[in-house]
Each structure stands twice: as C-alpha cells, then as structure tokens.
Computed example of a mutant assay.
Amino acid sequence: MALKGPIDRNQQRQPQVRVNHRIRVPEVRVIGSDGTQLGIMTSQEALRLAQSEALDLVEVNPKADPPVCKVMDFGKYKYEEKKRANEARKKQTVVEIKEVKVRPKTDDHDLDTKVRHIRRFLEEGNKAKITVRFRGREITHPEKGREVLDDVIKALEGMIIIESNPALEGKAMTMLIAPRPGAIKRAPTPGTAAPEPDDDDDDDDKD
C-alpha cells in the first residue's frame, strides 16, 4: 500500500479552479483569449476552441448561470495570481501601539522629550498610547493628568487623530492617538549625509 505524504490543510481549504475536462457543466459562457465575449456554448465546444489555440479553458466565475469560462494560459494565470497575492501581502503594514508613560507632575523639559518620542512613533506609522501614572494621593486630582494629555495634544495639533479620548482606568489615565494621514512626513533616514558643496567654481575663480 502506497504511503501518502502530509496533507497541506491550507491548500485543501482553497477553492479549486476547474480547468479543461474538469469543467463538467453542460453549457458555459465563454470569454475568448483576447477578451471577446463569445457567448454561450457547450463545454465540449468551448474546450475544443481552447485546444485549437493551444490554451486552456478556465472557469473564472462558477456561480454565474451558466458558469463563465475564459480561454487562457492556465500556467500563466496561476503565476499572475500568485504574484498579485505576494504584492498584496507586501503592501500590508503592521501597525504597532507604542506606549509612552508620563507623570502628572512631568516638567516641561521631560514632556518635550516624550513628545519627540511620540512624534517618532507616529512618523513610523504606529499609534501611540499615552499613559499618565498616578501615585498615592495624586489620584485625587485626575485633572492634573488631563492637563498633561492636553499639553501633548497641543504639541501635536494637526498631526494626530485621537482614537480614544483621555479616560481614567484605575490609577492611570490613558489616551490613544494615531497619525493623521498626510499630516506627518517621515523623518530622513538616519546617516543620510547632506550633499557636499560644489567647489569647481571656486577652483576656476582661483585660476
């Protein structure tokens, strides 16, 4: 008894495209290899047409009545589909949420530093969660935490979208912000040197 290799369950779940003799419905609506609508014909007629062009008959819309088939190179079709899927995956961006912690008594210098960090996170396309931590009796004055968050909002005014307004959670007040599309430009790549001045003109003047 022959042993079968491991089954790829992900591949099993993918819908199988019917091609050529696997298309067993009586009639199909056919699209020619040049995109021309050829109308309805029997599956056998459509297959003979594809074979006459040394191409394949591929079912592209099985849910239509009758199903729609196209005359094409199936190998090239699979390659293009895989290429499009890979390009779509590359375009997908993973957005992270970076947390920045501050205190209700954070001084201006420290807050400026925190704001620079937040701005860098936003320039990278990430979101930022700003958390104000209260200690001891500081929690009795939550308005102090709100003032700090308001200062952050003012410092980044016009650059951000507030996705979650400041809210008190236990002994912390949090706020979630995201970059406003088109409002924040990415910082230059670190290590990029400025262009050197052209000294040719100076040398010519000396002559």
Score class of each variant (00 low, 15 high):
A2N: 14
P6F: 11
R13L: 15
Q16E: 15
V17K: 05
V17L: 02
R22Q: 13
R24D: 08
P26A: 07
E27I: 07
V28E: 01
D34E: 14
T36F: 02
Q37N: 08
L38F: 04
M41C: 05
T42V: 00
T42H: 00
S43L: 05
E45Y: 03
A46V: 01
L47D: 02
S52E: 09
E53T: 12
E53R: 15
A54K: 15
A64F: 02
P66W: 01
P66I: 02
V68E: 01
M72Y: 06
G75Y: 10
Y79I: 08
E80G: 03
K82P: 08
K82E: 11
K83L: 13
E87N: 10
E87A: 11
R89F: 01
R89W: 00
R89M: 03
K90P: 01
T93Q: 09
T93M: 09
V94N: 02
V94A: 04
E96I: 06
E99R: 03
V100G: 03
V102C: 03
P104F: 00
H109D: 13
H109N: 12
L122C: 05
K127P: 09
R133I: 09
R137I: 12
R137C: 10
R137N: 12
E138W: 00
T140F: 12
P142Y: 06
P142Q: 06
K144M: 09
G145T: 06
R146S: 09
R146T: 10
V148R: 03
V148M: 01
D150W: 14
I153N: 08
I153M: 11
L156Q: 07
I160R: 10
S164Q: 13
N165R: 11
N165H: 09
P166T: 04
A167V: 13
L168D: 10
G170A: 04
K171M: 15
K171A: 14
A172T: 15
T174V: 07
M175F: 03
L176A: 03
A178S: 12
G182Y: 13
I184Q: 11
K185G: 14
K185C: 13
R186P: 12
T189C: 06
A193N: 03
A193S: 05
A194F: 07
P195C: 02
E196Q: 07
E196G: 03
P197Q: 01
D201R: 04
D202M: 10
D207G: 08
